[in-house]
Design a protein around this nucleic acid. Sequence first.
DNA 1: CATTCACAGTACCGTACGGTACGGTTCGCT
DNA 2: AGCGAACCGTACCGTACGGTACTGTGAATG
Lengths: 216, 216
Amino acid sequence: MQLAAHPHQPDYSPRQNAVLDSALRLLVDGGEKALTTAGVARAANCSKESLYKWFGDRDGLLSAMIGYQASKVRTFEDNAEALTADTLREHLVLFARDLLEVLAGDVSLALNRLAIGQASREGSKLGSMLQERGRRQVGKRAGALLEAGRNAGLLAFDDRDEAYDTLYGLIVSDLHLRMLLGEDSGRMAKDFGRRAERAVSAFLRLYGREKGSVEP
Amino acid sequence: MQLAAHPHQPDYSPRQNAVLDSALRLLVDGGEKALTTAGVARAANCSKESLYKWFGDRDGLLSAMIGYQASKVRTFEDNAEALTADTLREHLVLFARDLLEVLAGDVSLALNRLAIGQASREGSKLGSMLQERGRRQVGKRAGALLEAGRNAGLLAFDDRDEAYDTLYGLIVSDLHLRMLLGEDSGRMAKDFGRRAERAVSAFLRLYGREKGSVEP
DNA sequence: CATTCACAGTACCGTACGGTACGGTTCGCT
DNA sequence: AGCGAACCGTACCGTACGGTACTGTGAATG
């Protein structure tokens, strides 16, 4: 959401990034159907010919949009200091809230809808791109957190991926899908804090080594 | 998947149901883009004019497809007999496996993709239809199961919906979304059994009243 | 047999979109 | 000044799709 600290264009020029921004905005508040080449060109004040020169074809544009957005939301590494039970919980709750807010973001929702829509066609790499750049990134942060918790003797698990899968499920459940299906995400955004607390509490009850947990 | 026991067409004639079947098949192995009115008419050996007479317009056809499919997968009520810790666990595992298999079904995936694709447009009721007919149905079965478990003194929870949300998250996590994004669902179908066991074990550790649980 | 109904098949229309081509303009370089 | 690259704006083309109208046909109904 924030950050434009260092210039990061491994792929495209600033001008092209601006075009991708316009395209993303168009996608967000119009859906895929609104994302026409002519529409993008008009919204970005560029010519269709340039679009095709830069991105090849429409699918190339879509891929570029995903790559661009992924490069923007690079998750910050929270370097775990000395972990206690409380700080671990704190970090986990923070992670959970961040995750929920990312998933509920309109750009994220729009891109996921787009990729899902393309998933039926064969060659579509969009799904795996989102998967790779999105979840894998977030998963790395969570994985590091879990690993640190285990090293500090606060968590107990054999398979880190399995533990992360559990954590993810506890946090998100089917909320993401419901939002993708159109359920008003703003209305439920208020509960993210509570939901994050709940999920982390449950996760710690499952994987935590402290016996004392918070109970009502 | 099975069952054609009693004739159940609250909505459409057999002929029309056959057309909807063709449309579903078309959707499954071609995606939304392949689902053209001409294509449906050709596949079902009917005329476009009849399609429009029966279903109004393309959106009507989509709605009818969802309603028709929902009427087919009506979940059976497993009337819970006297519950013990073991039978409860058994029922939960069975539920979890059924849930995973339904979600992994190609018709389910195709319809979810369709509804998600339409979710951006305003008037689209498809998302809520799927939500209502799909999850709510399944949720009723799970809810009854959870309630029975609580009444038998085997489960402890205050909010049934919250407990169900947790159960759902433990079972599914982001698997559904990954499949919607195109990850090969057949490859992971083999793990459904193990996954169901894991999820139910975790759920019982969270909400079960028996202190003795299975441990490795 | 005549009439009507439901439907298939097909031709048709308007439109919207992906992709291409071209004229005109700006800007940097020599 | 001259030149060329990049690029905008627009016009254009082919096609595909949603939706409508028309014709033919077979089966029921009187």
